[in-house]
């Protein structure tokens, strides 16, 4: 009934064209758990890049540390797996050194909003042309299920055994508040919408962030009795509302809902572009004076 390709060497194409083109099949399948949402989101990124026709050679994937951050190693681009929380700061250097590169940061909720929160808000404020894709699973996956800045109040983690007392961050909202010129929210379930949001984020000139609700069945799911990976995706399907729908809903009605779509987009000069303009101005002034 099925094509069981067994342990086929990487030369044999036992995967879709998209995966063959944009992933490093010799490293697949990923170390991620069965049903982990990260694989779905990583595919969304590849699809967005395919839709835009970006060159792999001039695209850079930067990640920090976490389950999510392992994405960099699987993707066939210039990839750099950096230190916990610092992906945006590394990416800033890469973009500044060579603005013609398309720089995409792949990160987790802990990576970007706890240890890396400072870099997030400042890159947003600076409006440097990075695209940040957050695989937001509401927990620290890699270290085994501790609560993260996006764990809802009352939810459980290994370090929140009696329920989380903290209030949680809305990462897209946080970035928007800090000056991000493009902020969107997607989910693992909403593949096509999320792909489009990532695609538009990459196209956007300036700092863009796409906060994608992922699923971590292993820790978040188990600790919070959310069921299987399938159950968690069904929850996303059944509890999401679009930005337009949300606009017509009351705060009360929006409780516990996932608002999906483009939250904010403005045009504002991109940082490396502005810097290049500055250099040009200095050169011109010098020529005039000579």
């Amino acid at each position: 009934m099925t094509v069981d390709t067994g342990d086929v060497s990487v030369k044999t194409k036992n995967m879709s064209n998209l995966i063959y083109k944009y992933m490093r099949p010799e490293h697949l399948p990923q170390i991620w758990c069965p049903g982990c949402g990260n694989g779905i989101i990583m595919r969304d990124i590849a699809q967005a890049i395919e839709n835009l026709g970006l060159s792999r050679n001039s695209t850079v994937i930067v990640s920090g540390i976490g389950c999510s951050a392992r994405a960099a190693g699987y993707m066939d681009f210039n990839t750099i797996h950096t230190t916990h929380g610092r992906a945006i700061a590394f990416a800033t250097g890469i973009k500044l050194a060579n603005p013609s590169l398309e720089v995409i940061v792949v990160t987790g909720d802990g990576d970007i909003s706890a240890i890396g929160g400072n870099h997030l808000i400042h890159a947003a404020r600076r409006n440097i042309g990075l695209t940040v894709v957050v695989m937001n699973n509401n927990i620290y996956g890699m270290t085994g299920g501790q609560y993260s800045p996006t764990t809802p109040t009352g939810a459980f983690g290994t370090t929140a055994p009696y329920g989380n007392l903290d209030r949680s961050f809305d990462i897209a909202g946080l970035a928007y508040g800090a000056g991000a010129s493009y902020a969107a929210r997607g989910s693992a379930y909403h593949v096509q919408q999320t792909t489009t949001l990532i695609q538009e984020g990459i196209k956007h000139r300036g700092f863009s962030i796409i906060d994608v609700a992922s699923i971590c069945p292993t820790y978040y799911g188990r600790k919070n009795k959310k069921g299987s990976a399938v159950d968690m995706l069904k929850w996303q399907r059944d509890n999401s509302v679009t930005v337009d729908q949300a606009a017509k809903m009351s705060q009360e009605e929006l409780k516990g809902k996932l608002v999906i779509g483009l939250l904010h987009q403005v045009n504002y000069p991109e940082f490396t572009y502005a810097y290049d303009q500055l250099i040009r101005r200095l050169f011109e002034e010098r020529e005039e004076n000579e």
Partner: peptide, 23 residues
Amino acid sequence: KFIQMEDEIASMACAIGGSVAGV
């Protein structure tokens, strides 16, 4: 290019990034 980063951790990371891109 000069950039004033948000802290020294970021400065270090940014300089590494620049070098990785060949500068």
